[in-house]
Design a protein around this nucleic acid. Sequence first.
DNA 1: TCAACTTTGTGCATCCGTTCACAAGCGGTA
DNA 2: TACCGCTTGTGAACGGATGCACAAAGTTGA
Lengths: 260, 260
Amino acid sequence: MVDRRGAGDEVVTTAAAKRSADAAESAADVRERARAIPEAAVARLAVYLRVLSGMAEQGVTTISSEELAGAAGVNSAKLRKDLSYVGSYGTRGVGYDVEVLVSHIERILGLTRKHSVAVVGIGNLGHALANYGGFPSRGFPVAALFDIDPDLTGVPVGGIPVNHIDDITSVCAEREVSIGVIATPPQAAQAVCDRLVSAGVQCILNFAPVVLQVPDYVEVRKVDLAVEMQILSFHVARRADEAAGDVVNGVGVDGVVIRP
Amino acid sequence: MVDRRGAGDEVVTTAAAKRSADAAESAADVRERARAIPEAAVARLAVYLRVLSGMAEQGVTTISSEELAGAAGVNSAKLRKDLSYVGSYGTRGVGYDVEVLVSHIERILGLTRKHSVAVVGIGNLGHALANYGGFPSRGFPVAALFDIDPDLTGVPVGGIPVNHIDDITSVCAEREVSIGVIATPPQAAQAVCDRLVSAGVQCILNFAPVVLQVPDYVEVRKVDLAVEMQILSFHVARRADEAAGDVVNGVGVDGVVIRP
DNA sequence: TCAACTTTGTGCATCCGTTCACAAGCGGTA
DNA sequence: TACCGCTTGTGAACGGATGCACAAAGTTGA
């Protein structure tokens, strides 16, 4: 927690930096700024945040855009532009203060609040999610589990007893669930989604391989293994096609026969 | 290939359509076309494919761009453009033949070949992946499992015995693994990735929350739960901020003061 | 055969995100 | 203090994806 600006009352830590930022910028500015951040940039900010957290743990106090970009797998111009959406918190000629940057990204990502999570569908994946340690430690406590199987009701998984799916509305309201995770078979996903929405959940992470139909005000993110595999498959095929094409001309692009 | 269409001789349709397509178009054309498909469109093609498969199972033989777009959650113009990357296989005034479209998308996505998958890291997630039925049925047989824990070696998971990670090179080569799935703790991910790459695996699906460094010729896709959750968190926060903005003007959107 | 109707395929304009390039700003040094 | 070198922050150019709008092409029915 060493502060690089040695000049004066430097007990300025994360919280203090945050407060001064809030003071310098009106709430409306922050709002306007957040609204304007491209979705792709938000995803990268989350990655930067993890890298920065790792840096902080290793005692790094300052980092340049070049270094951070390298660690995050992007180019430095993009990184600086992404950070500029958050605000101007770097020091020219020096770089960024790791702690300060962490706190500002957390603020923009809304990580200063707790977001209670409900997992629906306690099969293989649901178990894995309920036991996944990464959630609570990052501000996403798993507050409820649901399944349609009555035999599972009451059984604790990852320390939390499973509720029957029929209780979803009351339990979600009571525990202030803001994010619902759907890990059910595809046939059940839309119905579960509808129930979550009517329970007031406005953000859904969907692992079921279906396209959910939701009202406009509900945000859905999809994690689809089959799609990911098929994208990889596409690249395998394209690569093989290119190799075949190049081989027709005798040798590979770089003069070497690829996978002979 | 496993035939998921239950209707008897339907594999013939697929194969025949493919053959005629290959005849109508030179291999170079197909290659050129595949090279030009935007990544975003590839992801959507995989979604269309699933929707179409479902339609086929329900006995639907023909579908219009409007219907398919609705089911896939995109607008019809985008859908038609995406399909135009694959080729012109619709009938004006009618729509698309479901079977034909399925076979052409499968061809473009490279699903006419088998892609053997290796899963590394047999923890909660690894178990879920090994037992996930969606892979084999869609042409992605899980051919190998690896873990660093010697106690797991030889134990069958999802019908496949776990190998020790030290055997990764030989086993991957022997079983012609083309896609590696990393489900290890983050600390181990880069080392595992390096081993997969040196074993000749060129496509990697990474569930570990780290940015993998790989040679240019290796394709990596990342599934990052923390990032997904944080993106949702951002939207929760943005929404709350917007509501708060309304509060500045008096009361919240629904007449309730948020965070008083 | 022809006209009316439906739906595809695509050129074009637009928008959004990425990249480039450099001025502005800061710390260090003499 | 004045200068030098380094790094940020951002205006502007660029490129790629999206959405519109319509001609082309096929079907249906008389």
